[in-house]
Design a protein around this nucleic acid. Structure first.
Length: 463
RNA sequence: CGGGGUGUAGCGCAGGGGUAGCGCGCAGCGUUCGGGACGCUGAGGUCGGAGGUUCAAAUCCUCUCACCCCGACCA
């Protein structure tokens, strides 16, 4: 199996050890998760091997394959539901932004200019005003908001858009950092500073944190970014940080209180109830396909992905086991009974009838992170039962009567969801340290085996 | 931008003047099948590109392109 096995063998691979390299049954995805290079290799192999994504001919741009896109669609659905439930509506703004718009907000242009893609020519003609491909949409949305906001009665304006953006990054990794990526970006306008701050926190907690913890089973630490790390042009930036399997942090979403910076730059003003013309307060917030990377790294193990049941494209896979034709017929009846019962219960279920050996399919679905496996062999068919195996513990098999399959699977899905969250939280706790001196801090930071979060006092950005 | 490295089959690699190899994957057939099977047969390559040396270049020389790694800079 030329698979997820060894990275080290890859480079040093001579024909002599080619045979030994196919370690067979015991082949682990990685040998040592504390080795950063190995972790990186494990991640990449997993992304390609599971067919979540593939490399494209365009540098830094990936192709999101059907399995990865199905996962993204489930993320979208859950996030979108929360965004709408908190009073926002969806809209769509152009991909291209007049280059001059970016210049309006000094910090904004300074932050994004180095990674902006330009369009200077269309067909054979040079454009009179060059366009940039949006790296984010504050500029063009700010421009439109200035038109639409006249009175305090027009506020708040609570819009969101699902879109792609482009940032010309030098080092890219599928999902985690790509030149083009998909995301949602919310842009709101408010009457007062308090209201804008409330919105910023609402998105942070009730939309993002709730989504990450309940749907993706990823515990997060929410907090405020330092001055040097905040969004270019923001007053304050808040983010959600999740711990990955190597102990490092991944920013899983951001929510910005933009103050009046963009209102000033784009002239978003309204006449208040007291008749005075005032500058508005705006916010923006976003979460991207990077979340797929977060799920991979927060939950993945040596056997592959472990997808949270609530967002897994396939929640339960049925593996039929048979040899002779009459066995196949008997098994098929039980499989379809289970399949329709589960479908009726709202479970995303698939039966895997490929002409492969059962062991191969077991591994394959573990690799792809399917939360629950259902085995149906001749013995099960004869006894009107099925075997359930959760992805989180392959030794925890349970045999259930076919009549109870829907209830048992639903319950098992819930427990897998919970187990993933609990394990991620326990891991984070085991890798969170308190330090009281700079020396301790440095020692911990430098050691990959203990890589994790460090709680320490901080006296602010250096001048 | 500075330093290093690599381009040979879909993927991972070997070969280093005599006309192309290995593993995986892929196709066909057979044996297998409750934890990643195996055998046989087969398909697949302008050896990154251009120029040069030579009877002969994947191999040597020159130029060029692309990508990767390490630094510096960074939502």
């Amino acid at each position: 199996m030329g698979d997820i096995s060894r990275a080290k063998a890859g480079k040093a691979g001579k024909p002599a050890d080619a045979g030994a390299a196919q370690a067979g049954k015991d082949a682990k995805l990685v040998e040592d998760l504390s080795d950063r290079d190995d972790y990186s290799r494990w991640y990449l192999d997993l992304v390609y091997k599971t067919e979540l994504a593939d490399e494209s001919p365009v540098r830094g741009c990936m192709v999101i394959r059907p399995y990865g896109y199905a996962l993204w669609e489930n993320f979208q659905h859950e996030l979108d539901t929360r965004i709408k439930a908190t009073g926002h509506v969806n809209a769509y703004f152009p991909l291209f932004i007049p280059a001059s718009f970016l210049d309006r907000e000094a910090e904004h242009v300074e932050g994004f200019a180095p990674e902006v893609a330009w369009v200077t020519r269309a067909g054979n003609e040079e454009l009179t005003e060059p366009l940039v491909v949006r790296p984010t949409s504050e500029a063009i949305i700010g421009h439109m908001y200035a038109k639409w906001v006249q009175s305090y009665r027009d506020l708040p304006l609570l819009y969101n858009q699902w879109a792609n953006v482009v940032r010309w990054e030098k080092r890219t990794r599928p999902f985690l950092r790509t030149t083009e990526f998909l995301w949602q970006e919310g842009h709101t306008v408010h009457r007062t500073e308090d209201e804008a701050e409330t919105e910023t926190m609402l998105i942070l907690r009730q939309v993002y944190q709730d989504f990450l913890e309940k749907e993706l089973a990823i515990p997060v630490i929410v907090g405020r970014k330092t001055e040097s790390e905040k969004f270019a042009g923001a007053l304050r930036t808040y983010s959600l940080e999740a711990m990955m399997g190597d102990g490092r942090a991944l920013q899983a979403g951001t929510s910005h209180n933009l103050g009046q910076n963009f209102a000033k730059a784009f002239d978003i003003k309204f006449q208040d109830a007291d008749g005075v013309s005032k500058l508005a307060w705006t916010t923006s917030w976003g979460a991207s396909t990077r979340l797929i990377g977060a799920v991979i790294m927060a939950h993945g193990d040596d056997s592959g992905l472990r997808l949270p049941p609530r967002v897994a494209p396939t929640q339960a896979v049925i593996v039929p086991i048979w040899r002779k034709e009459e066995e196949r017929v008997a098994v098929e009846a039980t499989v379809s009974a289970a399949e329709s019962a589960l479908r009726a219960a709202g479970v995303r279920v698939k039966a895997d009838w490929r002409e492969e050996r059962p062991g191969f399919k077991f591994s394959d679905h573990e690799l792809r992170g399917v939360p629950v496996r259902i085995e149906v062999g001749p013995r099960d068919a004869a006894a009107s039962q099925v075997v359930l195996v959760p992805r989180t513990d392959r030794t925890a098999k349970q045999i259930v009567p076919i009549a109870e399959v829907a209830g048992k699977v639903t319950a098992l899905l819930d427990s897998v969801q919970q187990a993933l969250y609990d394990q991620a939280l326990a891991f984070r706790k085991s890798r969170t340290y308190q330090v009281t001196s700079y020396d301790e801090f440095r020692t911990l930071l430098g050691d990959r085996a203990t890589m994790g979060f460090i709680e320490a006092w901080w006296c602010g950005d250096p001048e």
